[in-house]
């Protein structure tokens, strides 16, 4: 038995057309599609082909034509210059020109510094001004805490600056810097006398704990007239220096409390007005005093401890 498939032994029947070719009356004509039309319709109904024709082909044509057109260097250059010209004509319109720079919220030296830093040759098109970069550049100035740069109406470039407020003077070797509450450098001063209103701190790493210094100074409010400054010792703890070279050695932890205790002691015993060189508060349990040499002698005499009158 043979397979039920169209075998190769099929022969074309001799008769190819029997049906009457002229349309009979009353019969609806439904002409058969040609083989080609049939195949094209089937091809068109193939999803992949459809996508290819509707998306792939236009995309290819655009890319191909564009590529061919741009393959010539002269045309590319002409295109570039045209584009640049168009851009410039738009950028040079008066609506986009910046003719003035206004800086608000800055002191005179800062104003000058900002103008120098930006170095704008006005008038300039706002297309050529990089506001973000300008803002970043102004922010690099120490005295600037916050800055806002924008191009306002009437072609004015507005720079709104919030300055840092110095609260401390930091002596570092010969240099004197102004610090803000966070310990950030604000500016340099040439002499201490330039800012006598600000307390002085000194020592390596003093700027890193500026807030602690401020707390200590606030706590030492009763002895402010005598206070000469704070010294950071070994980047670890503070010494409070008073006039007459008196020193208060504060502990590394909780220096403010130690200071308050000392002040209480001072109020009760009038400690600091005596002839004391240092008050050592580094140990919580045992405040230690170092007396001046004369005072020590007087104390010994008063206690009846006779020492040999010699240097040894």
């Amino acid at each position: 038995m043979r397979a039920v498939t169209a075998g190769p032994h099929y022969r074309e029947p001799p008769m190819t057309r029997v049906a009457a070719s002229r349309a009979a009356p009353g019969l609806r004509r439904d002409p058969a599609p040609t083989r080609m039309a049939y195949r094209m319709q089937r091809l068109w109904l193939t999803p992949v082909f459809r996508v290819l024709m509707r998306v792939g082909l236009p995309a290819f044509i655009i890319v191909f034509v564009g590529g061919v057109w741009l393959s010539d260097a002269e045309r590319r250059e002409a295109l570039n210059s045209t584009m640049l010209g168009v851009r410039n004509t738009v950028a040079q319109r008066p609506e986009f020109m910046v003719s003035a720079l206004s800086i608000s919220g800055a002191s005179a030296p800062l104003d000058k510094a900002i103008r120098e830093l930006l170095g704008l040759k006005l008038p300039l098109s706002s297309f050529d001004i990089d506001l973000v970069a300008a803002q970043a550049r102004i922010s690099t100035l120490d005295a600037v805490e916050k800055v806002e740069v924008k191009v306002g109406v009437g072609g004015v470039m507005e720079v709104t600056v919030t300055e840092r407020q110095p609260v401390l003077v930091w002596r570092r070797g010969d240099a004197l810097d102004l610090l803000d509450p966070t310990g950030r450098r604000v500016a340099q001063v040439l002499a201490r006398a330039d800012r006598p209103d600000l307390p002085l701190i000194a020592g390596e790493g003093a700027n890193l704990v500026a807030d602690e210094a401020l707390q200590i100074i606030a706590a030492a409010e009763p002895i402010i007239p005598r206070l000469r400054g704070l010294v950071r010792m070994g980047e670890r703890r503070w010494d409070v220096v008073l006039d007459r070279n008196q020193r208060i050695l504060l502990p590394a932890d909780q220096p403010v409390r130690a200071m308050e205790r000392l002040l209480a002691l001072d109020k009760a015993e009038d400690l600091l007005s005596r002839d004391v060189l240092t008050v050592d508060l580094r140990s919580q349990l045992r405040p230690t005093l170092r007396l001046a040499p004369n005072a020590l002698n007087d104390l010994r005499v008063a206690k009846g401890i006779v020492t040999a009158e010699s240097d040894l």
């Binding site: 074309e12 029947p13 057309r17 029997v18 049906a19 019969l27 002409p31 599609p33 089937r42």
Partner: peptide, 29 residues
């Protein structure tokens, strides 16, 4: 579609039948 080339339910004329099948299939597609 009107059948062409089919008699007694058998293919009688090959080309006509093929055309008729094509017509029907194309319209249905």
């Amino acid at each position: 579609t009107r059948s062409r080339g089919v008699r007694f339910g058998e293919v009688h004329v090959m080309n006509e039948t093929e055309r008729a099948i094509r017509t029907a299939v194309q319209a249905a597609q």
